[in-house]
Design a protein around this nucleic acid. Structure first.
Lengths: 201, 201
DNA sequence: AGATGAACTAAGCAACGTATACATTCCACT
DNA sequence: AGTGGAATGTATACGTTGCTTAGTTCATCT
């Protein structure tokens, strides 16, 4: 645990980095528990602070969850970016694998990131931005293949979203443990969908 | 509202069909609100009964949610079954369309149905059964094409799950309103993924 | 008629999210 | 250095939630 997230001194009145400490506690909680079970009071308690203190940094529980979701998208983007840089197999394959790994390692986080949005909330621009950056990684992965470069830009994006949807579907079905764990054939099937230029056997 | 869901008489002590009334109230609540926001107390209140009464029919809130999820899977199965029976275009296309329609019409329900399962809960056999019946509809849709019949059974199922994952991914990305609404190209792209024998222009 | 068990009510507990009022600490200006 | 205001924390309280326990009413069976 980085020192910066601890109170500056044992008896310090001010925490010093409460917002980040709360987010870190939230990340930790999301490793094993669902976002629904995440309690603002318990988070505050775990960092040694009153519940009301959290309201200095978040408008409420929902805004904290939104911050955690944004955090998750940034982490996902990093993971995808790292995956397509180098390694065996094709870039789309590596991207898909990285996506499924991420989803398998943080199921509650992914559920939080992609939960249905309440009707007319237009205030999620930061989330949409991060979403766009993730899409850019899909585009980048597809553009490493020469075939994809031929299509016009909108078609490239369309293919990127299709790829995203495919791996995301596998990730979600895997997370809810439909059909046991899909591990045996999930990965090859997902890879198949990820590479639109080829067909399986 | 069917008469069977109403109390037998105005001053009746016993409700008479409380379990189904609670489920119906839950379905109604899931039309506009998330499962997280669903309150057992408010549900009971809305059907004119004390909260404790619900515990005669469900072990707790979670079991009620599970019953609603099961209900959702049965509804989904019916929708898929009806879709592949007849209509224009191919059966897989119709199935995919029906799936996306269902997801768009009941986003909170779908989120509940496919939420990540808590680790070692083995008591969801009914849910797994309904899941299997939905998968059967995907298999049936794919088997209307002659190409799919050639593969061995495990490969057919693999293709069915791949199709499911593809449309499900689109449904989820659509539900969380990534990229605005994906309507413009979501459907054709999804249809592309659903029909593994063809490729888009 | 009397008993038995299912379905409900009443009352109460701990925990939650949130709002308000107050206390403390830090920063910037003089 | 001293001071005032903003930032950041505490204390407390309100209403709601899930759930438990103990009592009440009803239907049914012998």
């Amino acid at each position: 645990m980085p020192e910066a997230l601890l109170p500056r001194s044992r008896s310090s009145y001010h925490h010093g980095a409460l917002r980040e400490a709360l987010l870190q506690a939230g990340r930790d909680a999301l490793v094993s528990g669902s976002a629904e079970a995440l309690s603002l009071r318990e988070l505050s308690r775990s960092v040694g602070v009153t519940a009301s203190a959290a309201y200095q940094h978040f408008k409420g529980r929902d805004e904290l969850l939104e911050a955690l979701a944004l955090d998750g998208f940034l982490a996902l983007k990093s993971a995808l970016h790292a995956a397509i840089q180098h390694g065996p197999r094709s870039a789309p394959d590596r991207l898909g694998q990285a996506y499924l790994d991420f989803a398998r390692q943080h199921p509650p986080l992914v559920a939080l990131m992609f939960r249905p949005r309440p009707k007319g909330r237009g205030s999620r621009v930061a989330l949409d931005e991060a979403l766009g950056e993730c899409l850019a990684e899909f585009v980048a992965a597809l553009e490493t293949g020469r075939a994809a470069r031929a299509g016009d830009p909108t078609q490239v994006i369309q293919r990127a979203v299709a790829s995203w949807a495919a791996v995301h579907g596998f990730a979600m079905l895997g997370a809810c443990q439909a059909f046991g764990t899909l591990d045996e054939w999930m990965l090859p099937a997902a890879a198949t969908l990820m590479s639109p230029g080829r067909r399986e056997g």
